[in-house]
Design a protein around this nucleic acid. Sequence first.
DNA 1: ACACAAGTGTAGCCAAGGCTTTAATTGGCG
DNA 2: CGCCAATTAAAGCCTTGGCTACACTTGTGT
Lengths: 148, 148
Amino acid sequence: MTETPNETPDNAPQPERFNQARAAQAMAVLEDYAEMIGDLMDEMGEARITDIAARMGVTHPTATKAVARLKREGLAMSRPYRGVFLTEAGVALADRVRGRHRTVVDLLIAVGVPAETAELDAEGLEHYVSATSLAAFEMFLANSAARS
Amino acid sequence: MTETPNETPDNAPQPERFNQARAAQAMAVLEDYAEMIGDLMDEMGEARITDIAARMGVTHPTATKAVARLKREGLAMSRPYRGVFLTEAGVALADRVRGRHRTVVDLLIAVGVPAETAELDAEGLEHYVSATSLAAFEMFLANSAARS
DNA sequence: ACACAAGTGTAGCCAAGGCTTTAATTGGCG
DNA sequence: CGCCAATTAAAGCCTTGGCTACACTTGTGT
């Protein structure tokens, strides 16, 4: 191997922004599952693989794999044939995701997107909203409310 | 609750929205590549694999694969060892993506997101903005401009 | 007590989208 | 003209996240 330390790719414009988007995308699925498990725990007291799969619109093996990944990331715990539970970190993530989702939906509505579309689009958008943008959204919403 | 587990999945929120988001995600990469090829054709008259790869921040083989996918989708054409060109459909897609990108950036800025962050976030966000939301964004921007 | 249905887990396949390595083509230069 | 560097292509591997098929627990009902 020639010593090719992963230095800056080269003098290209900014390919990093794509990598950043790709990284966010990797996290997106985890976030969705964590949020879903949080919802199920709130509603039913526990999250079962079948329910998670049904809600996510996937088959149980797929849900199992996702849960395995959540466990690997320290976001969830589960014992064989028992329900799935979120760790403290998982709960924190779920809460954060939920809050962000609401903010995104509210912002979309605030700029004139129909409520239904806002919900639908937010599902895809939310994972790509940076903390900076989220803060801006909240400020914008606060100002809008105050001005109305 | 009695044991009766034969109940319908309760208020199961359509899992389709997740599938929708997944579909959008599949298109995202293609859109990015098409846009990039369009840029390169405008700037240099042709798009070469090496340039595409550099700009996207990936290796050449990855870019080659992406181009193959674009060709499969009827969005691009290329002859071995010659440049890559967009088909009519590809050009249309690239233009649409470019316009949407600008609108998204403008909207983010309009609601108070710093310009740099807006650019960065738009890269991920743009692929999930529906036509309905996009139209709402444009109307919002038009109104903002008029009111300023 | 045991059988069977439902739920869960495991294995193996596929496509996408990354990567590295190796081969081939092109084209410029000595 | 022939060789070499750069470019492109091809082949093979990895991970993610879908899927189906099949195996195994669990626990409920007779």
